[in-house]
Simulated assay, not measured.
Amino acid sequence: MALTPELTDKSFSTTEKHNLQFEVLIDIGNKAAKQYGLSFKLTNALTEVYKNGVGLKNYNSDDSSELPIAATYLIDTNGIVQYAFLDADYRKRASIIAIINALKVLTTK
């Protein structure tokens, strides 16, 4: 599953565009991200860029200027995190190879 602060119609278009085969849940206001310490506030300069260039409020429906940190977790059936990747730089994501390898380890336990 994925968690996003994007409005339903925006996240739905992302799901369609990338042909995602998993559930995408909406986290309006980054409430869940905040609870897990996975959100950050943009600087004033970046807030202006996102406000004027991207139209962040049109995607996230609020003026908080907060974004989630991109994170990937693999959690076993006992609720234990077996793999974690997070980076404040949204351009850096967990590699598919690393995720597949971690899944292989989980399925052999």
Rank of each mutant, 00 (worst) to 15 (best):
L86V: 06
S64T: 14
I99D: 10
K51N: 13
S64E: 11
E48F: 13
Q35H: 07
N19W: 01
A71L: 04
Q21P: 03
V54F: 05
G55H: 00
N78V: 02
I75E: 06
T77C: 03
A2D: 04
V105Y: 09
N101F: 00
L38A: 02
S13E: 04
I75Q: 09
D89T: 12
S65Q: 11
I69L: 11
F85V: 05
L38T: 05
D62P: 08
S64R: 13
T77S: 12
K104E: 15
L7M: 08
T43R: 05
R93L: 03
I69P: 06
E66S: 14
T8G: 04
Y73G: 06
P68E: 03
T72N: 12
L86M: 12
T72A: 07
D27Q: 03
F40P: 09
K10Q: 05
G79H: 03
M1K: 12
N58E: 11
L20I: 10
L86Y: 14
T108L: 07
A33E: 06
A84F: 01
G29F: 00
E6S: 10
R93P: 02
E6Q: 14
Y50I: 08
I100K: 15
Q21T: 14
P5Y: 00
N52A: 13
Y36S: 02
D87I: 09
N101Q: 15
Y90A: 11
S95Q: 12
L106A: 11
A71H: 07
S39L: 03
N30C: 01
N58F: 10
L86H: 13
L67A: 09
L38Y: 04
N44M: 13
K57C: 09
L74T: 09
T72F: 04
N44G: 12
D89F: 04
Y90G: 06
L20S: 02
D63E: 12
V105H: 11
N19G: 11
T47Y: 10
I99F: 02
A33H: 05
P68C: 00
L67Q: 05
V81R: 09
Y50Q: 05
A84W: 03
N60Q: 15
E6H: 14
T77E: 13
K34Q: 09
G29P: 06
I100H: 14
F40E: 08
G55I: 01
T72W: 02
P5R: 05
N30A: 01
A32Y: 10
L42Q: 12
V49E: 07
G79W: 01
A70M: 12
L38C: 01
N19C: 08
K34L: 00
I80H: 08
K17S: 07
T77Q: 13
D62K: 02
Q82R: 15
V24R: 00
G37I: 04
V105K: 13
V54K: 00
L106S: 08
A71C: 12
N58G: 15
L38K: 11
T47P: 07
L3R: 14
T4C: 01
V105S: 10
L103N: 05
L38M: 11
L42P: 05
E23T: 13
T15F: 01
K51R: 14
S39T: 07
T107M: 13
